[in-house]
Simulated scan of single mutants.
Amino acid sequence: MLYLRDAFPRERWTGALPETAAFWLQMHAGFRAQQVQMADAATRWRSGQLDPRGLHAALIPTLQAFLQHLDGHHRVESGHYFPQFRLIEPRIQTGLDLLDRDHDAIHAHLDALYHSAVAFHRGVAGQSSDAPDHAHRLADTLDRAAPSLTRHLDDEEDIVIPLLALKGASAA
């Protein structure tokens, strides 16, 4: 699979990308930006700059959008693009299998984030004394999920963007 990255390295990922590749990178940039925004909210919580309500306002809307968009994105990739890529370029089967397994592992993180967020939301909405504990658990869950997702986005781009750039419209 490295032949794709070697044939079309990141340094060449500029304005000359096919529309689908540019859109893919735009989606991934959005996920990365949301991760930064959520990590920032967790950092502000941990430093005492936010109380539970402030963390709720800063984190929950972004987390909700992040969970929805990432789940939908993975469904489209695994259900549409990856099967198509397998036909177009059989040499990347192993890489696509890895990315599909990553989707499963990331889904476990998304599920944990969802459940942590629900517990936190209930604690804040009910003005429960355990809201701070739920906030800490949610922040810790965010920390655990981030490295896997970041690595997955990078790995996926190293396969998908060169494939789309080199194979053109037939890959989209």
Rank of each mutant, 00 (worst) to 15 (best):
H109E: 11
H109Y: 13
H109M: 13
H109P: 11
H109W: 13
L110K: 02
L110H: 05
L110E: 05
D111A: 13
D111W: 11
D111S: 08
A112T: 14
A112D: 07
L113R: 05
L113N: 04
L113A: 12
Y114Q: 02
Y114G: 05
Y114T: 14
H115V: 15
H115G: 04
S116H: 04
S116M: 00
S116K: 03
S116G: 03
S116E: 02
A117I: 14
V118I: 14
V118S: 12
A119R: 14
A119C: 11
F120R: 01
F120M: 03
H121R: 11
H121K: 09
G123E: 10
G123K: 06
G123Y: 07
G123R: 04
G123L: 11
V124E: 03
V124T: 07
V124Q: 04
A125G: 08
A125Q: 04
A125C: 09
A125Y: 06
G126Y: 11
Q127N: 08
Q127H: 15
S128L: 07
S128N: 07
S128F: 05
S129V: 15
S129T: 13
S129Q: 10
S129H: 09
D130R: 07
D130C: 07
D130G: 05
D130V: 14
P132D: 01
P132E: 02
P132M: 02
D133Y: 13
D133P: 07
D133M: 15
H134R: 15
H134Y: 14
H134M: 12
H134T: 14
A135L: 06
H136V: 14
H136K: 12
H136D: 13
H136C: 08
R137C: 10
R137D: 10
R137V: 13
R137K: 12
L138N: 03
L138Y: 04
A139C: 11
A139K: 01
D140Y: 09
D140A: 14
D140V: 12
T141F: 00
T141C: 01
T141A: 01
T141G: 00
T141K: 02
L142K: 00
L142R: 01
L142F: 01
D143L: 10
D143G: 06
D143N: 09
A145P: 00
A145M: 03
A145E: 00
A145Q: 01
A146M: 12
A146V: 15
A146N: 10
A146W: 13
A146S: 13
P147A: 14
S148W: 11
S148T: 13
S148M: 12
S148E: 10
L149A: 10
L149R: 06
L149P: 06
L149E: 08
L149C: 06
T150A: 11
T150L: 13
T150N: 01
T150K: 10
R151K: 09
R151T: 11
R151G: 11
R151N: 09
R151P: 08
H152C: 06
H152M: 00
H152Q: 04
H152V: 13
L153H: 03
L153W: 03
L153M: 08
L153F: 08
D154Y: 07
D154P: 05
D154C: 12
D155M: 05
E156C: 02
E156H: 04
E156L: 00
E157S: 05
E157D: 08
E157V: 10
E157H: 06
D158L: 13
I159N: 00
V160N: 05
I161E: 05
I161H: 02
P162W: 00
P162Q: 00
P162M: 01
P162G: 05
P162H: 02
